[in-house]
Nucleic acid binder design. Sequence first.
DNA 1: CGCGCTTCTTGAACGCGTTCAAAAAAGTTC
DNA 2: GAACTTTTTTGAACGCGTTCAAGAAGCGCG
Lengths: 244, 244
Amino acid sequence: MRKTHTSQKSNKTGKGEQTRALILETALEMFRERGYDESTMRAIAQKAGVSLGNAYYYFRSKEFLIQAFYQRLHDTHIEAALPALEHDKTLKARLLTAMRTKIDTMKPYHQFAGVLFKTAANPKSPLNPFGDESDPVRTQSIQLFEKVLDGATARIPKDLRAELPYLLWVYSMGIVLFWIHDSSRSHRRTYRLIDHTVELLDKLIHLASNPFMRPLRKQALRLVDELRDAAESLDDDDGPGDAA
Amino acid sequence: MRKTHTSQKSNKTGKGEQTRALILETALEMFRERGYDESTMRAIAQKAGVSLGNAYYYFRSKEFLIQAFYQRLHDTHIEAALPALEHDKTLKARLLTAMRTKIDTMKPYHQFAGVLFKTAANPKSPLNPFGDESDPVRTQSIQLFEKVLDGATARIPKDLRAELPYLLWVYSMGIVLFWIHDSSRSHRRTYRLIDHTVELLDKLIHLASNPFMRPLRKQALRLVDELRDAAESLDDDDGPGDAA
DNA sequence: CGCGCTTCTTGAACGCGTTCAAAAAAGTTC
DNA sequence: GAACTTTTTTGAACGCGTTCAAGAAGCGCG
């Protein structure tokens, strides 16, 4: 896996890596244009000008192609969200921006997303958002909400503040789940849902920040911790997994 | 689809219905013993002593077999929950019983359930719990929580009370989702989660019932209504669906 | 019985994701 | 260059879910 210094002879980034990138780009393009089911491995390979087996040499399964797509989608979202967030100062506004740009970004892939989350719900799938394979994307997503909170003026107790990025990420996954099922024009239902839930969340966060609510808040946060712990130990199962 | 009156000549419930039942029972048994992936349509057909095509004559796809399994599971849960509920009077105790018996019932099918909810998360799947095909099971499930609430002594405002059965059903789906991912011994993590969430829910319900909370509660309930509306109109899509 | 009609049953066939032994290409060492 | 190893590439093959044209079985009616 050592890279051959700086490949001087040509602009290649390693022969294999080039093929890998070719296949990936071809696949992503095909997903966008034809959707998931139509983008068969054979079709992708053919369009990329490689053999079927070769595609499998670089991507263990079709799901790993989706995983790459997932990452790409997230990167695009970050690029859209960060600049937009600079204008917003209140927690509510910042949350709204983060969520709206998220849906904006995903919009072109609505039909494809259905498949994405179908497989994502499978505990054994590499796309499972709580699983190991999704760790990079998940971490980055949570970091985005970290930033959403950091730039906001709201005063939030430490205990809640610590868990909030994670909680907001889970919330965002719920919104995406709704969006997948949303067949209304321009997904207006999802945008409306975002408006309403963000407003409610804003109120809830302030309510939960009230000293009066401390005991209930503590209990709820303990629960969240437990959930998170559990979500993180999905590995040691009896199943054969995907280690071919 | 008209039923041929009362079939007088024999104890058959229609020739076809017999074959259908045979295939279904064989499939359910195989699911239990071998899990989902191992129970291929070919294997099911062979074990049932019919041809492969014949299985497809009665079940449009493999997923429709799971749908039947789903219904069966629910029936078993009802049978276990109703008697047990007679001993419990408080809301907390009744909720606990309902949820614990739910997991008890599903326990033998843990590995299988993973697949079940993988496909259930697909909007196009007949197993989608919000979709039309799941209507009977969903309605019955909500009715169970209706009964859970009816037998409880807690005083709950009308608006909340009206939505609560649905909300508790959604909650129960969340628990099941957790359970699917839970690989701890005897699923103790899930049981612990139930204990904690039920206690929290109990407190939340009482908190939300406080006149003080009326405005926030109203807003939240409006949101729930909207969510429910949206969830119920998933049909008119552009996709080809499964009408083949 | 023969005829027509519906219901039921069959097995071959298709395209899919995936696997694999083997060949080709590239890299390494003398 | 030759010999060897490693990386890359290939295409046939497998088992799967699903489809379909064709036939068999059941049934009412003359």
